[in-house]
Design a protein around this nucleic acid. Structure first.
Lengths: 327, 327
DNA sequence: TTGTACGCGTTATCAG
DNA sequence: CTGATAACGCGTACAA
């Protein structure tokens, strides 16, 4: 209805020039008298900055894009990502930065995501970027600040990132299982094209002692995947006495499969997961805890740093064990 | 690194004026020769429009804000909202519109949301707007296209909305319970400051026959709320033989409470919910199905219409019963 | 300290 | 059909 007031309106009301108004707005040095007058005019006119004009004139970005490289459906399933996103939104909100969530029209294909990324000029937070993502390459090449959630395989030097010490976590939990007397420890891995999947398997190998291929089956981080993998495991290695799943969701599936197969948990077989996701609490799962809140905080810090012009850098968050009823 | 190319660059390469380039970009009439030249220049320069400049110059908004009026934490719990959001993102993505999700720094207070809304100038999709929301009033007053998910109590005439036939749904399910021989049907209501809560209770009253206050307890749409409400119900009306919860989440809580109290479902007491949320499938809950996908489609349509200048309008989605094991 | 004037990239108007 | 050119709202050198 009524046109929004501009800095010109404010300037007129305050009896100063637009330059002065702009300075007040950006915290630059201004005389006390003018400043007061502007402040007053600001509220009396109900001024709200036009972010487009502001950005066009070269101001700091007012938005950050949250870029997902996997189909939305799968994302919904991941409560961890939701938590991270929420935390980041809060933190960025404190900096007056809004989060935009573009979405790929076609699917999860790298090219679809790349097309999306092309229209982005504000800083970007990427999730689940596949190895050598061309979208990430594009962004980085154009000088857009990028922070990756997880190691950006193939672009470690050009974009900042925050990751977890997956290998150590897997090592810790497998060692724990061994310390509890388990000797036939199986594992359900994550997707091997994601860094987490690789590292968690590596940690398993580090700690498991003698490596038996029959005790390793691939998973995809889903409940159903965990279910199927466990059935296969129970078939090809009936004597196993522990299962380490690379994610809590899969571990929950393992729990269900064990129950169906009549195996007592943790009596007959111990089950452990990874992430300390919500479902881990609900099913009383022993798992590896990722400090999600601090993780999100780091993500935000990295982003702000890049925006301020700092060089890309990576940080890895430590993890620890949380022992519950399943192992 | 390298500056993004502008329409000036494109114009130079194509050997035409910026006006012509702009016309091509916006699908306005242009000579075949020029058009071809521009198209070529467009790809050869890798041109990507600057949305800020575009918007500043008066173009159609390229983003839509997804505004939540409740704290983020509660939102995560609501899978329905997530689904809606995802569907809308997809549909809007097809129109080259991105979704931004601002977040209130402080909390769910109406003033916090209002402050947020103040910086919005693009169309808005509001969720869980409380009665007489000042944020919505603000937006509508400034002429911002607003579409509400659910009836925007107090602003029915000024903003578009999509809602469900809550009253009818409640009526249907209570009638169903009666047809199955249930005579002491209790209900756990939703928050009374939300339209859904009010309407679902109204539908219950419509169909329940004789109304007994002892059979009605308030809920808050949460699992815990359903749990507590059911305990109270079982205490104050031990002879009840059915419970209609105003949301599936609460119904799940009711299921748990019944189990703990040793009441068989549906033998001793029938339990029904509302929404047909994910948890309803998992717990085999009889409930009222809301056509979420079509709901989202309507939301998008309404939004696009308002953007095109149409008057605000409301649409109500029909609902139907889905009978499962709980009743 | 403060005011002025220019530039940011597009769209749209107005002549040609 | 096409080419100039004036907005759009704000940041910021530059000048005073």
């Amino acid at each position: 209805m009524s046109r929004r007031s501009t800095i010109y309106d404010v300037a007129r009301v305050a009896g100063v020039s637009v330059g002065t108004v702009s300075r007040v707005l950006n915290g630059h040095p201004v005389g006390a008298a003018s400043r007061a007058a502007v402040q007053r005019a600001l509220v009396s006119t109900g001024y709200v900055a036009n972010q487009h004009a502001r950005r066009l004139a070269g101001a700091r970005p007012a938005t950050v894009a949250f870029l997902h490289c996997v189909p939305g459906d799968r994302l919904l399933a991941d409560a961890n990502v939701n938590t991270l996103q929420l935390d980041c939104r809060r933190a960025l909100g404190d900096e007056d930065i809004m989060m935009v969530t573009p979405v790929a029209g076609g699917g999860p294909s790298d090219t679809a995501v790349r097309a999306l990324a092309a229209r982005l000029d504000d800083p970007v937070l990427v999730f689940s970027a596949p190895r050598d993502s061309t979208a990430v390459a594009d962004l980085a090449g154009r000088g857009v600040p990028v922070v990756s959630c997880g190691v950006p395989l193939g672009h470690e030097r050009r974009v900042s990132y925050v990751t977890t010490d997956d290998r150590d976590g897997a090592q810790q939990i497998v060692s724990y299982l061994r310390s509890r007397g388990r000797r036939r420890i199986a594992t359900i891995t994550g997707p091997m094209d994601l860094p987490g999947g690789v590292q968690r398997l590596a940690g398993y190998r580090d700690a498991v002692g003698t490596f038996d291929p029959a005790l390793v089956v691939p998973g995809d981080y889903t409940f159903e995947g965990g279910l199927a993998a466990t059935r296969q495991l129970l078939r090809q290695a009936p004597d196993l006495d522990a299962i380490f799943a690379a994610s809590d969701t899969m571990a929950a599936g393992a729990l269900a499969a064990c129950e169906q197969a009549g195996r007592q948990v943790p009596g007959d077989v111990a089950v452990a997961g990874f992430d300390d996701a919500k479902i881990a609490t609900q099913t009383r799962l022993t798992t590896v805890r990722i400090p999600w809140h601090r993780y999100a905080a780091q993500l935000t810090i990295q982003l702000l740093r890049r925006m301020a012009g700092d060089e890309p850098s990576g940080v890895v968050m430590p993890v620890d064990l949380v022992i519950r009823a399943s192992a």
